[in-house]
């Protein structure tokens, strides 16, 4: 565990809290893409199926392979799952009337189908768990596309929404640094599937980061895109 990895995880965790705080404080989820949030629940669900493995080890008192890192990962995985499901739940219950569904027009099959095909072809091992893990990595890389499309459609984002997007994009950028660090310091560390997907994911945020920093520098509350 290096400083980049832990910062990335905390930034990711912060993104959930920023979004939940925004929704609770303003009683609105305006400007937030439900489709992106739904994709994140799918991403975490497919990726963290190994939680059952950890659960299995715990209820059989098989603690030999449970390390501090396992406990940290397990704790964070449960938090990420709970937070993403809670966000989707809020957007479909008490905040449904404020949801930007009419402008959230991205067709999810356009990312789901290619990710599924890629996961079936390019994976480390042709097993169900491994394919679902790979699918989640590919899907996470592009899951922000409905959100970006909504942002372009709207032309601007309020302060908390843009902080949220910065946290989501920034976390993967920090993971890139973490991978470089691990590649340099750990003799056999290699995970090209995550590296390529992580690079694509970070690159998708490129424009957004630019406008975010322009906004921060100019001290505006809202992030405005050029028309």
């Amino acid at each position: 565990m290096n400083i980049f990895r832990i910062s990335a995880d905390l930034l990711h965790l912060a993104s959930f809290f920023i979004l939940i705080f925004k929704m609770k404080a303003t009683k609105s989820c305006k400007g937030i893409s439900f489709k992106t949030q739904l994709m994140y629940t799918l991403v975490f669900t497919c990726r963290y199926l190994d939680l059952f493995h950890v659960l299995g080890m715990m209820i059989t008192f098989n603690f030999a392979h449970i390390t501090g890192l396992t406990l940290y990962n397990t704790f964070m995985k449960i938090l990420f799952l709970a937070a993403s499901y809670y966000i989707v739940y809020l957007m479909r219950t008490e905040l449904k009337s404020t949801s930007d569904d009419a402008r959230d027009t991205f067709v999810l099959w356009h990312i789901l189908a290619p990710c599924a095909v890629l996961a079936l072809i390019f994976n480390a091992q042709f097993t169900i768990l491994e394919i679902l893990w790979t699918f989640s990595i590919y899907l996470e890389a592009v899951a922000v596309m409905p959100q970006l499309m909504l942002l372009i459609e709207t032309g601007e984002a309020d302060s908390l929404s843009s902080h949220y997007m910065f946290a989501v994009g920034g976390y993967r950028a920090l993971y890139l640094v973490n991978w470089v660090y691990r590649y340099a310091t750990e003799p056999y560390y290699s995970n090209w599937i995550a590296w390529i997907a992580g690079f694509v994911q970070t690159a998708l945020f490129g424009d957004f980061f630019y406008y975010y920093f322009v906004k921060i520098m100019s001290g505006d509350a809202a992030l405005k895109l050029p028309t």
């Binding site: 990895r5 995880d9 990711h12 190994d50 890192l69 990962n73 964070m76 995985k77 990420f80 480390a124 091992q125 893990w133 993971y175 973490n178 003799p187 056999y188 560390y189 290699s190 995970n191 995550a194």
Partner: peptide, 10 residues
């Protein structure tokens, strides 16, 4: 070490 494949990240 053969294929070193890490699922130790989030």
């Amino acid at each position: 070490p053969g294929v070193i494949y890490t699922h130790d990240e989030l």
